[in-house]
Nucleic acid binder design. Sequence first.
RNA 1: GCGAAAGUGGCGGAAUUGGCAGACGCGCCAGACUUAGGAUCUGGUCCCGCAAGGGGUGGGGGUUCGAAUCCCCCCUUUCGCACCA
Length: 845
Amino acid sequence: MDSTYDPQKIEAKWQARWAEQKLFESEVDSARKKYYVLEMLPYPSGDIHMGHVRNYTIGDALARYKWMRGLNVIHPIGWDAFGLPAENAAIKNQRHPSEFTFNHIDRMRGQLKRLGVSYDWRREIATCTPEYYRWNQWFFIRMFERGLAYRKKSRVNWCPSCATVLANEQVVNGCCWRHEETPVVEREIEQWFWKITAYAERLLEDMKELVQWPERVLSMQQNWIGKSVGAEIAFMVNEIEEPLRIFTTRVDTIFGCTAVYLAPDHPIVQKLISFSEDPEKLRREADRVKASAIHARVEVELEKLGVDTGFSARNPYNGENVPIWIANFVLAEYGTGAVMAVPAHDERDFEFSTTFGLPIRSVIAPVGAGFVPPKESTVINVPSEAFVEYGILFNSGPYNGLTSEIAIERMTRDAETRGFGKGTIQYRIKDWGISRQRYWGTPIPIVYCDACGMVPVRDQDLPVILPPDVKLTGQGQSPLASVPDFVNTRCPNCGGRARRETDTMDTFVDSSWYFYRYTSPHFSTAPIDTEAVKYWFPVDQYIGGIEHAILHLIYMRFFTKVMQDIGLVNFSEPVARLFTQGMVIKDGAKMSKSKGNVVDPKEMFAKYGADTVRLYTLFAAPPARDFDWSDSGIEGATRFLNRAYRLVAKHASTFPPGKADHPKDNRRPRWDLGQLSSEERRLIRKTHQTLRHVTEDLDGRWHFNTDVAMAMELVNDLSEMEESIEAGKVRPKILKNSLEYLVLMLSLFVPHMADELWEGLGHSEPALRAAWPAFDPEYAAEDELEIPVQVNGKLRGRILVTVAVGEDEIRERAQAEEKVAQAINGRQIVKIIVVPKKLVNIVVK
RNA sequence: GCGAAAGUGGCGGAAUUGGCAGACGCGCCAGACUUAGGAUCUGGUCCCGCAAGGGGUGGGGGUUCGAAUCCCCCCUUUCGCACCA
């Protein structure tokens, strides 16, 4: 072993050896307990960035720890390889997207190997290969068969300059991201949807199982699904005798209804216009309201705007006629697209009514305010603001005096028995639109036949291969439509002439089930090998960025529920524990090319080595928080590694050579603390304290920065003890034991350097094959701890006590009593209460 | 506006359940070794004070022998949702 640290040499050596020894390869083994560590698969953008480094370093530390704890660990990686950037690059350079994609994968794979992450590379997948995407198509067909995949007309963002469809993310301030001057227009085209709304309730319900997910992610998902319980009530439009359904969560306020508002896009609007006395005028005004609503998607704050249609609707509860307005703030896509206006008890209605001079009628009184409801039911109050809480009903006919809760229940029931309404549940979540008018994605396996209609491709004809020769222009609709050989086909049903669907799937489909595929990446008769999934699932730990809190992490849950219904899996949630790491920022902003604050991992590997980059990444901040990169901070990390390496290497050379393989179980040498020199005691204590900290932290808290800090302290202590060690005050056996434990701990964070040192200490196998040593509570106890002493409840200073944590409380007490007796010289002790590490409470006479 | 999280030195951050605030590292200061230092090593580094001592965890109040930690009010920041009826 060299006496100085040469990361480039060491890292190349160990990466080669790990691969040679197949160190990270694992197989189903029902005799052993498994552990599935998963990190979110990267998009092959060309080079890994610091966010990747952080993500994979966290996962790697965990995987290595679980391995050393004796678990059968699966730790896979793959590529989210379809998507827009490759297609855009292809358009620009007139090359094929696969060329970019596979080039990028090769580069990034090399960089991940350079980082030394413990992946089982045999399980690598790329979602753009037919072997993978054929199963996307298989899932599509299963969805189609179950009525979960359907087609409907839907709005898309269309850039007139590009002459193509834009994803929502490509719309910037209402304009195209490539043509900042060109406003995006809406177009209606037929698109495929997956009925995730059918699973809304289960997605909510099963959150109960996700006890190890961050609260933040769950509340974001809950918000996104947006369940609200309410009622649909039909008002009758008097002039055309047609019912108009509104949705409300507050049917108890309906006696305070003074108008009905329609969304500008509500279907009945056109009808009202045509029946209007002055259709031209109403149309003009309706268009004006509509235009302001569209404008609102760009603006932050929308000024409320509306127009009275001149029509009126009958409130079924009290027979009262109220005007029908078109209002710009009513959403067509939520509920029924029509709402009742209760200005006294809704802030938006209140604002609208005061602006347009509509009447305001209170019908709910605050509970317990000593409020006496007015006897006259015609009284119109004019409050200064909307009262939106639940309360007691008045001015509400037969429902007067009821609480809101009871009234909602009873009024909903009455609506049902009298036939003008019903209780309903609304969700904010919408069906998942999966069609993309793009080339670089999974072809949708549907054929259109004039005779048979929409027919799914037969399973045995999958995959529908993405044709390689396509002229990508970025203009017009789906590129696949321009390939006659692809489009023209035979109907799977009748054999007649037919056309293929030319849209491709959203890439979120790819990432919704990729982690199943890792367990049997080459399985050829089904998307997954159910035996392998049975063994490896659920994912024990999933690690990734918070930016996927909603889309990916909901789609993934949805997919698993569908798979459960198909009978592919026998559980409903795929991920037991989720961890969302913070972002990597520099100079106060997220690293990005446009900001010019990017730190390239490649350069860091070349300058410092992978271990230094890993150590710094873990040390600079707890993984859950954002991490602010500092160029001088990493210098500290490399300094530490140099020091640690030299220290261990120097001592290692003094130990007699010989076979000294670490035991496969976690037995450890034991010493009688009383027989040791104080230096030996100090070293053993520090070592076991560090071990305890690191062990407990990896088992749950995940503040790896403090683990690294503890390891630094241990190295600092060893340096300070250098003279005593040279003077022979610490026996080699004890010193070597401490150094070994130090190296095993370091192997989680800086595996290459640790393996080099581990070998230097006489071990023939990598540290990963060693058992994680158990800390000894007695050794890990604080030595001579200073503890506050209270006498009769008053603080009386501090004493030094030896406290053992855990097991033997008697010993703690005996020692404490003796010392305390000395401390309070001679007074009679009635009672002593010892709280280890915290407080000695003494009662004296 | 609603919801969530967070406010600790010059900086990143420590302080498992209330118990020595500032671990560990960066930076800075001084020194050693050096032709040299952006290498390495040693010492110092919350504030006031020569010192004894006192003050100090966004601000104000409270509970407690004891509060960065628990409770109430206020301020600030970040993130998510933003007319969802």
